[in-house]
Design a binder for these strands. Structure first.
Lengths: 188, 188
DNA sequence: GTCTATAAGTCGATAGAC
DNA sequence: GTCTATCGACTTATAGAC
C-alpha cells in the first residue's frame, strides 16, 4: 500500500507531464488525489517541493546508473550500449517523472536548480566522454561529438512521449530498435 | 523597420522559449519591449493570440515545405534528405518560434489547438510515408517505422536548444553532420 | 487528517485621462 | 499610443474548527 504522500507525488508527476508545472494548480492535483487543496499540505510542504523531489530522484537515478557503467570493465562501445539500454529502462519504469527532466526543470527555484543542473551537466560530460572514447577507438565515425551527444540524448529524452502512447510495446524490442537507430542510423 | 506588433511577437517567442508560455506574464513581456503591460493591448488582442499566431506561422512553414518536397520529382531518400535540411534551415532562421512547436502548443485554447494538431499530424504522416518508401525501395534497414519517425523527429525538434547555445556554427556544416548522424548513425 | 474560509499576491485584460 | 489605476479571477499557502 502506497503512502498518501507517494500517491500525491505520482499524480503530480502525471499532471506536470501532461500540462506542465506552471499550468497545474494545487486544486487540479487535489481533485485527482480525491481531497481538497488545503489537505495536500498535511502531506507535503509546497508545490515546489513536489517538483524538486521528483526531479532530484530522477537525477539520482541517472547519477547512480552512470557510476555503475563508468566503473565497469566494459569497453566504450559496450558502455554506450549500456547507457542507452539504461535510459530506456528508466523511461519505461518512470515515464511520468522522467518526462520532467526534459523541460520542467526550468521551474526549479533557489539552490535546487543549481544542484539539479550540476548533476545533469556531469551526466552529459560523462556521456560525451564515452562517445569520445568510441571515436578514438576507431569503431565510430569521425564526427562532431557535441552534435552526436545532443542528437543521441534528444532521441532518448523524447522517448517518454512516444512510450506514453505505446505502453504495450515490448521493452526489449524497443531497446533493440533504438540502439540500432542510434548506432547504425536509418540507412542500410 | 519592424512594426511594434512584430517586435512584440519576437520578444514573446523568446520569452515563451526560455520560461514557457504559462510562466511568462504580460508584465514580463512589456518590460522586454519597453512599455507598460496595458500598452501591449494597443497592438495585440490577447496573450493567447501571440501564441496562436507564432505557432500557426510555423505550422504553415512546415506545411508549405512538405508540399514542395512531396510534389518534387525526387526519390524517397532525396526527399528525406531535403526534409532534414529544411527542418535545420527553419530552426536556424526561426529558432525561438520553432522551439514552441515542441512543447508550448499544449497551451493553445479552443479551435486553434485542433487546427494546429491537424497540421502537425498531417506533417508527421507525410514524413512517415517518406520513411516507408525509403524502406520499400530497399535502401533502408527493415525497422519499426514508428520508432524511426519518432527518433528522427526528436533529434530535429531539439536542435533549437543546441543551436541557441551554438549560434556560431556553420549551418551547412550542421546539416552535413545531422544528416550523417540520422542516416548512418554513430558507428563506422 | 480533512474540511471551510480566507489571507496575500499575481494574473490577463479593461477604463479612461492625456 | 502610452500611461495609471483597477477589476475580477485565479494562485499558493495558512488558520482554525471538527
Amino acid at each position: 500500500m502506497k503512502s498518501k504522500r507517494q500517491q500525491i507525488k505520482d499524480h503530480a508527476a502525471r499532471l506536470f507531464r501532461k500540462r506542465g508545472y506552471k499550468a497545474t494548480s494545487m486544486r487540479d492535483l487535489a481533485k485527482e488525489v480525491g481531497m481538497e487543496a488545503a489537505s495536500l499540505y498535511n502531506h507535503i510542504q509546497s508545490k515546489q517541493e513536489l517538483l524538486r523531489e521528483l526531479l532530484m530522484e530522477m537525477a539520482q537515478l541517472f547519477t547512480t546508473g552512470m557510476e555503475e557503467v563508468q566503473t565497469s570493465p566494459l569497453g566504450p562501445q559496450e558502455k554506450l550500449e549500456r547507457l542507452i539500454a539504461q535510459y530506456i529502462r528508466f523511461t519505461v519504469e518512470h515515464t511520468d517523472a522522467i518526462s520532467l527532466i526534459t523541460s520542467e526543470w526550468v521551474h526549479l527555484e533557489g539552490p535546487a536548480k543549481e544542484a539539479y543542473t550540476l548533476l545533469r551537466d556531469r551526466y552529459e560530460d560523462n556521456f560525451r566522454q564515452v562517445l569520445t572514447d568510441c571515436i578514438e577507438q576507431g569503431h565510430f565515425r569521425e564526427m562532431d561529438v557535441g552534435i552526436a551527444l545532443f542528437s543521441t540524448l534528444s532521441s532518448l529524452r523524447w522517448l517518454y512521449s512516444w512510450y506514453s502512447k505505446h505502453r504495450d510495446v515490448n521493452p526489449l524490442e524497443l531497446e533493440k530498435e533504438m540502439t540500432g537507430m542510434l548506432l547504425d542510423g536509418l540507412r542500410k
